[in-house]
Nucleic acid binder design. Sequence first.
DNA 1: CTTGTTAACTGTACGTTGTCCAGTTATGTT
DNA 2: AACATAACTGGACAACGTACAGTTAACAAG
Lengths: 219, 219
Amino acid sequence: MDTAQQQGNGRGVGQRAGLTRDAVVRAAREILDTDGYPALSMRSLARALGVRPNTLYSHVSDKLELVDALLDDRLGAVVISRSRDPQRRVRDMMRSTYDVLVGTPGLVPLYLTRQGASGENAQRLGRALRADLGELGLPEAQRQPALSTLVVHTIGFAAYATADPARDDARPARPAAEARAEFHRSLDWLLDGMLSRDGARAASGAPDAGSEDPARGRG
Amino acid sequence: MDTAQQQGNGRGVGQRAGLTRDAVVRAAREILDTDGYPALSMRSLARALGVRPNTLYSHVSDKLELVDALLDDRLGAVVISRSRDPQRRVRDMMRSTYDVLVGTPGLVPLYLTRQGASGENAQRLGRALRADLGELGLPEAQRQPALSTLVVHTIGFAAYATADPARDDARPARPAAEARAEFHRSLDWLLDGMLSRDGARAASGAPDAGSEDPARGRG
DNA sequence: CTTGTTAACTGTACGTTGTCCAGTTATGTT
DNA sequence: AACATAACTGGACAACGTACAGTTAACAAG
C-alpha cells in the first residue's frame, strides 16, 4: 500500500502505476461496497485506480475472471462455525453465508450464474459442510447433493431478498429482517426434512409411480 | 398474422410494419428459444421483425418491461395440477415450474432479480399453491412465507442447473437428468420439513438462544 | 370526402459498455 | 551496459439501450 492506488492521473505513457492483481480486486470490492454492482465497470474501476481501462487486462484476463475473484473473495467472510452440535454448525454456516451474500446485493445472482464460485474459500466452506453432513449420518453418496441443496437454497433466498421489486406493482418492499427470519425458518424446514428418517424415506423409496407427468414445458 | 413480421426491410419512412405488443413479445420469445438470452437485444429483436430498433419503444416502454412480459409468459406453461392429494399437487406444480424454467436457461436468473414475476400467470399459480398449502393445514400466516420458500427454492435450483460452469475448472458438467432428480429430492425434503409437526416446532419454538452469533459479514 | 389527430415508424445520434491492437518505456535480469 | 518482459497509454471497434425529431399511414370526426 505504498506506491499504489492514488488516483494520480498525471502520468505519462510508459509510466507505471504499481498495480497488482490484488489491488485491482480490492478496488473492485470497494466500488461494490460503496456504489453497488451496476456501478462496477472496467472503466469505473480503472478510473478509481487512476489508470486507463485496458491497463486492467494486464492483471485480470476478463471481467468474468474479476467477478469470479470477487465472488470467492466474499465467501472469505463466512465464518466456519465451531459449535458442538454438527447440525447447529451447518445451520450457522448457512446463516452466515446468507448474511454475507445479502451484504453485496448486486453480486448475488452471479453466484447462481457461476455455479457458486469454485475458488479457495468456497472449497474450504464446502469441505467443512460436507464433513458435518457426514457426521450427521448422511451416507457418502448423499452428502454432495445435500450440500448443493443447502447452498442453492441459501443463495436463492439471498438473491430473492436483495432483488429490487418489480417497478409497476407497489408492494411495500418487505423489510430485510423479515426476509432473514423467513430464510431461517425455511432453512430449518430443509434441514429437518433432510436429516429426518422420514425425509430419507420420502427421498428414496416414495411411490413415484402414478405421477401425472408434469408436462416438461409446452411452449 | 396477416401483415406482420415478414422481414421486409424495404420499407420507407412512415410505412407501417403492423406490429403489436404481442407480436414483439412473441418474436422475443422465439429468439430466446432459438439462440438463448444473450442473443436477445433490442437490436436483434428489431432485426428479426424487420424494423429499426427504436420502433420497439412504441410497443414496449423498456427492455425491462419486455423481459417481465417474457418471464410471465413462460409461467403460462406451468401446469396446474389436478391430483387428488394436495401435497402431490404442490409437488407436481413445483416440478412443472422447474421444468419450464430449465427450458429457458438464460432467463432464469432474472426471475430472482425481478422477484419472481408478478404477472397474470404468476398470480394464478400463486393462488393455486396458496390454496393447496391451506388445505394442507398451514395456518394463514404461514402460507405466504411457505409459498415464497417453495418458489425461491425452485427458481434457485433451476438457475443452478442452467448455469454454465466456471470456465477454468473442468468439472464434467453434471447431466440435466441428474440435476432434475436432485431437485426432486430436495423438494421432498423441503415439503416434508415444512408440513411435519416437527418442522413446525423447529420453525417457531426452537431454542434459538445460545446461538454463537453467526457474524453478519465482517468486511 | 375532406380534414385533423394520433401513433407507428425511420434516421440519426449520444453515451456507455467490454475488449483488442500497436505502440512506449520503466523495471528486473543477464 | 544491453536486453527481454510486461505494465502501461492512445485510440479504436463493435455492440448495447435509448432519446429526439421528423415523416406519414391509419383512423375518427365533420
